[in-house]
Design a protein around this nucleic acid. Sequence first.
RNA 1: GCGGGCAUAGCUCAAUGGUAGAGCUCUAGCCUUCCAAGCUAGCUAUACGGGUUCGAUUCCCGUUGCCCGCUCCA
Length: 526
Amino acid sequence: MSKNLDMEILASLCKRRGFIFQSSELYGGINGFWDYGPLGSELKRNIRDAWWKSVVRAREDVVGLDASIIMHPDIWKASGHADGFADPMVDCKVCRKRFRADQLCAEQGLELLKTAAGFALPDGAACPACGARDLTPPRSFNLMFKTFIGPVEDDSSSAWLRPETAQAIFAQFNNILATSRQKVPFGVAQMGKSFRNEINPRNYTFRSREFEQMELEFFIRPDEAIALICGQVTTLADEPDLAGKPQASWGWEVWHRYWVEQRLAWYRAIGLPAEDLHQHWQTGNELAHYARACVDIEYAFPFGVQELEGIAARSDFDLCQHQKRSGKPLDVFDEALKQAADKLDVAAKEAFAEKVVAEWTGRGKSAEDARAFVTKLYEGKFVPHVIEPSAGTDRLALALLCNAYDEETLTDDKGKTDQRTVMRFHPAIAPIKLGVFPLVKNKPELYAKAREIFAKLQRRWNCFWDESGAIGRRYRRMDEAGTPWGVTVDFQTLEDGTMTLRDRDSMAQVRLTLPQLIEKLDDEIG
RNA sequence: GCGGGCAUAGCUCAAUGGUAGAGCUCUAGCCUUCCAAGCUAGCUAUACGGGUUCGAUUCCCGUUGCCCGCUCCA
């Protein structure tokens, strides 16, 4: 269904019904920014609520954070964002290939010039691919939006809008640990706006410059600590029960897979079909240097299979980076670890240390670092490792819109055909849960009864009152908004209190009393 | 960032170097006992800026935005 959907058709419906508008449309629009209208804002709110409920409230081991968007610039220096993509780039105007200006110059025995405005190419620089001496001036491609704090716009007051929400979790790790009464393993969740100055926003809202993320940093013990505490580390080879309760012996590999399964189950629960959800396990070159594993959860969008969420096993990289830059310790004390370590004699400790050194050096780390790590372990201390499921709220909203969109041709009793557009949202995320209608509006008694029922239902769910036009038209309007049910109050309601509940997907109708109706909807909305 | 295409009402489309039109939607009213029914009335548009011209929505230039391909996506 979604694979054949023309994105322009969807964008048109989204505008017509008030899901998504182009930002600043009144002034001609602004590339890479989008606004959510009356229905879209409800949809997004429902997505956020469902995520928060699933990741934070339904669990005992995850707490929340709501951090500021602008943070100390050193955070982005520690995280690598400030340097990671700040390389000056040049494009060859002839063959259109792109190169890093500094590398290009070095290869040709030249030196990249620094100017007041940034960088400039020295004379003689040529395209390494085609040899043409027709290169664009070097441009810095840092994807972070820059801004200034306070009244003076100079380097000392510059700051960035966050390119991801996650770093605040690391920066506040100590405070959260001290106040949340959690201990490793536990997680910190955050959702909110992030900003990336994408070179080329594309595919409707898919790649935007301002977007919303739902991120979890789930902190776990390093495998070496688990080995000391549990005597062994459970790996995937042990075929652990990932659907069951997490176990103390789980190593990072199991935790990582556990979160992949958790997240996939959630996507299915809010209505994305399993066959449209894909997993892309990053391999060797694709993995960032600090990541041990990373899975992209992808959705089959009409414009291709694209990432909704990345779930990375990031080891202790982030906390270590911040520890280094800030000079403040970000390790935890683990009573169970200390007790386990205290039970070992000197020989056992040395044997364990040798094993860790061998493993670490095998992974390209220094024996010195390995020894320092083990020494800390024996004191019951370590820097937690982390599993990071990081999802895009707007991307998910787009996936849900694509998935919901359907057109069907109806044939009535007289053989007349008619086209129906219907957004088949899961009830949990549908912007409006229920349309409430008086069958006719010119019968005061009936009208009053319908208003009374509407008032009662409105207290529970987002309901929509509609009294205008024929009843069929009102049903169809709700279909395009993706409202799962319509309730019609008719003359029989006045006699026996029952009303018609019309189902969006099947168009089937049943008569129910108010309590029956409430029970049914409670059940299905969840 | 490069190349190509496009830009008229909320949506889909028409027309024109000289008053911009339709269907659907929407609003109000009438009617209406369950799937976009009917009647009446109404709102709403030439993306923005400049040029040519007596006059530009139409021709030209620029900008912005959207779509497609490439590129990019730490």
